[in-house]
Amino acid sequence: MKIVVTIKQILDPSGFTVNRKREKVFVNREEYIVNPADLNALEMALRVKDHDDETEVVALGLGPPRVDDALREAMARGADSAVLVSDPALPAPVAQAQVADLKIDAHGAARLMAAAVEKIGDVNLVICGTAALDSGAGELPGRLAEALGWPVLPEVYAIDELGDGVVRASQRTARLEADLPALLTVPRDANEPRHIYGARAINAYRQWQVVTWGLDDLGFTPDDLEPLTTVGGRRFPPKRALGTRLEGSIEEAVESVIAQLRAKELIEG
């Protein structure tokens, strides 16, 4: 079984502050992390590998050269190898979507990644995080499945069976089945990702390589990647109201909650 896990590198949210008044994002520390849901996707692939030594897990990333670090982290967590699609001709770093205007859209990204999956060859399964923490659009997995012409099983919490050309997987409330090859998406609460293995962290930099493919390697020219959609503008999401903190002992707090619920006529008595 060969499984590709897509890895997106995003700006570490703890490194920037959001100033609502000025409608600006201030980057205090430019540090990058692996998109959290992609770690859940990786974990799902590694669990298959835990039970089957033959399984090979390939991490696939797209973006500027620094995405190399995210892919090495994926290897340090257990991926067998890694492929980075990167090209100076790709006009803007995908991972900076929230601070820079997108020049290629999810459609272009998906087509490039589909070409990479095909070039990797003999891939049975692609697993993606449901959505990225930065854009939150969740657009890529569907487009990637479409570009590959594969079925997509969204919001999968666990793979129940894998083999004989079929994958059976559980969503929260339903069980799905599809012919292989197929693509799964995994939400952030699907599992508890394993940690980075120290020895693999060392090897990821000292021994192992990330294979890098440019547009040429995948048979694309920049013109092939004209976006279908363009960003027309940006605005801040509406502010969420903060909760209130109840003071006093537990008993007092509970009484206060009950009183407030009564006042809103949400409970009776």
């Binding site: 670090d69 940690h195 962290a201 060392i202 990821a204």
Partner: peptide
């Protein structure tokens, strides 16, 4: 780079 990643591994 590997020691930076190692620190993150230990922190985690």
């Amino acid at each position: 780079k590997e020691h930076q990643l190692l620190r993150r591994a230990f922190r985690e």
